[in-house]
Design a protein around this nucleic acid. Sequence first.
DNA 1: TAAATAGCGAACAAAGTGTCTTATATCTAT
DNA 2: ATAGATATAAGACACTTTGTTCGCTATTTA
Lengths: 190, 190
Amino acid sequence: MDRRQQKTRQAIFHAFSKLLETRRFENITVQEIIDAANIGRSTFYAHFETKDALLREMCTDIFRHVFEEHLTQEADHDYSTGEQRLLQRLEHILYHLRENQRNLTRLLCTESGELFMNFFKEYLYDMFTRYLDEFQGDVPRDYLLYYLVGGFAETVRWWVSKDMQPSPEEIAGYFMAVNETHNTREALPA
Amino acid sequence: MDRRQQKTRQAIFHAFSKLLETRRFENITVQEIIDAANIGRSTFYAHFETKDALLREMCTDIFRHVFEEHLTQEADHDYSTGEQRLLQRLEHILYHLRENQRNLTRLLCTESGELFMNFFKEYLYDMFTRYLDEFQGDVPRDYLLYYLVGGFAETVRWWVSKDMQPSPEEIAGYFMAVNETHNTREALPA
DNA sequence: TAAATAGCGAACAAAGTGTCTTATATCTAT
DNA sequence: ATAGATATAAGACACTTTGTTCGCTATTTA
């Protein structure tokens, strides 16, 4: 990839990220991003079709790291119970999230956060699906998935509201604690 | 209140509601609302300062009914356990939500839904706060609140995705089931 | 070093915003 | 029923934003 493209792309991401600190997504104009990134108008449109596309790519970038790198981690160890495996996985996700603390705080806590959360939830849904594939319980399986996704997403929001001060282990522990029931009983395969 | 105002207001709400069926909030223009409601431009601005204010008032309208009427209900009965009281309360909320099924489906399931959900969560947070005032557990109290709010909000989203076919009792039951642990143990005061 | 390509900057039409004014229609209270 | 109050219509307005296009320049890659 051309170095010029890389630089421009980074400049746009950076400018966008900084703007999100103070303003909500909907009220940020393409013009402002262009000015902040110090690029030409046509250059922006050469990179991104719309402002929405920019957000989408930014989210994808972040989440690819957060959720993907973990696949290797998983192969390394072999935990006895599903509960332990999930715990490890959640911790890793939280670690990666914290690496993106600056962006995350902006994306989650501004009013633009909802768009971001939707992306996040999609990834979470996939993940939990894989961890609950042998589930047989007294509530519908897809209901439990929705519920867990919502609970964990809100867990992260809470964490961010605490400036991510508690450790990922602590947070993951909290989440497992409030889910004791179906974790230990029947939700998670061994 | 002047009949003309009422009619105009309703026309705007109706038009807005219909537009939300197909498009996401951010992409709907004031002009479109004006055209759909068949009113004059200045008339819209006489009623609402911005598009955001319109959404806010619409949400407030809906939630006032959903959460408020319940206060009387509560006084009527006197349930022995906190768990039962919460169950009843959740059921009532779900009933009222279903009364607004048309609007809700649009607001929750379109991409505009996140804005709406934030309003919903604020109300939920207040409600759960009242039900957990004597809580003493192994996770921070406000964390549990966040978690429950997220879980219940997602529960409703799931319900809507099922066309609100399951009964409110069923839904409330599911929610209580996945929360068995802290409901029966220590979260809820008797 | 040459050919390809990314960026600049200006201009553009189109669409949307929010405000204001004047005239008309409709309400409410007497 | 009428008079005064007020909501609405309709149009104009300056302004902002958008997305596209063009010719020119600077940079990169092979």
